[in-house]
């Protein structure tokens, strides 16, 4: 059994074995093994040349990763918390994202790190900043929900020839476990997955939302309602076909994410569904997301802020009764 965290570590390790151009760069990742210990043991295995501890400088880290990628290496840069990617924002959205389009220069790099709430981390250690990048052509945005996908997708991300932002949900790190197949496998970027077949309504989600939906689906089963769950796995490029197929099948849809509502991934999905599957809908498209506030610190506020299985269940019942 591997946890989500171990799966990512395995995937990175395998890619480093496979390709000598893959290296790691970030704060406290080598000697310390990373704030969440994703890179624990990597220094011993691969040495200082390939596991680079940096000063405290996110813009520097992202910029250096871009430079190394332009020279043909495959850097995997860690943000200690994905919240701090904002400190390297320009490098991500302007340098990395626009090289290929402007002058046909590939930037094969990964920026990965923990995001998400539920750990009482407060406004700066709990955010889900994927939507900032979802709006940036030239980037790929990946957000796995399971150990299997986390490993397969980190491997694909490292092999990808475009810049990939890899959002790990920190509340899943040690909470979800599964057996992983022996040997090399990858999960393709840009492919969603129907993780649960159903016929009465669809929940389209990713990351922590998949687990909320699965829990809600069990409860709904007992009420005789069958929920289909689509795990997007990759947000950019978006696998529209899988989403639309599910909507056409069930005619009722909930778009669920832990990120805040306005300008979130759900809005884009709703627009695509309205454009391309309008005649299949039997009810309004429903979004479940965190409200438009910063992530509050106090447990009672955070509990009220975060989506959860209960909130999904309530909306699902409402939607099915519509």
């Amino acid at each position: 059994m591997a946890t989500y965290l171990e799966a990512i570590r395995e995937g990175i390790g395998e890619e480093m074995e496979r390709d000598p151009g893959v290296f790691l760069i970030g704060e406290d990742i080598a000697v310390y093994g990373g704030a969440f210990k994703i890179t624990a043991g990597m220094l011993d295995r691969f040495g200082e040349r390939r596991v680079v501890d940096t000063p405290l400088c996110e813009s520097g880290i992202v910029g250096a990763a871009i430079g190394a990628a332009l020279m043909g290496l495959r850097p995997v840069a860690e943000m200690q918390f994905m919240d701090f990617i904002s400190c390297g924002f320009d490098q991500v959205v302007n340098f990395a994202a626009k090289c290929r389009y402007r002058w046909n220069a590939p930037v094969p790099m990964v920026i990965r790190g923990p995001s998400g709430g539920g750990t009482h981390g407060g406004p700066f250690h709990s955010q889900n900043p994927e939507a900032w990048f979802f709006h940036t052509p030239g980037l790929k945005v990946v957000a796995p929900a399971t150990p299997y996908d986390a490993k397969g997708l980190i491997k694909s991300s490292i092999r990808d020839n475009d810049p990939v932002l890899f959002f790990e949900h920190k509340a899943l790190y040690r909470r979800v476990k599964e057996d992983l197949p022996a040997g090399d496998y990858t999960v393709p970027i840009g492919k969603a997955k129907v993780v649960r077949e159903g016929k009465d309504l669809s929940v389209i989600t990713y990351g922590s939302g998949v687990h909320m939906a699965l829990e809600a689906a069990e409860a709904l089963d007992r009420e005789g309602v069958s929920m289909e769950i689509v795990d997007l796995r990759t947000l950019l490029p978006l696998d529209e076909d899988t989403v639309l197929a599910s909507v056409r099948k069930t005619s009722r849809v909930i778009l669920l994410h832990e990120d805040t509502l306005t300008g979130g991934i759900g809005g884009e999905l709703a627009a695509r569904i309205a454009e391309k599957a309008f005649e299949f809908l039997d009810a309004p498209v429903v979004r479940i997301a965190a409200p438009d506030t910063p992530v509050p610190f106090s447990p009672v506020l955070e509990e009220a802020f975060l989506p959860n299985a209960r909130k999904v269940l309530e909306k699902a019942r409402w939607l099915c009764a519509y």
Binding site: H120, G122, P123, P294, P296, F297, S298, P299, V300, L301
Partner: peptide, 13 residues
């Protein structure tokens, strides 16, 4: 994370 903190529970430490 209590109401009596300087941020009233909005932020911590």
């Amino acid at each position: 994370g209590r109401i009596g903190g300087l941020t009233g529970g909005r932020d911590g430490n």
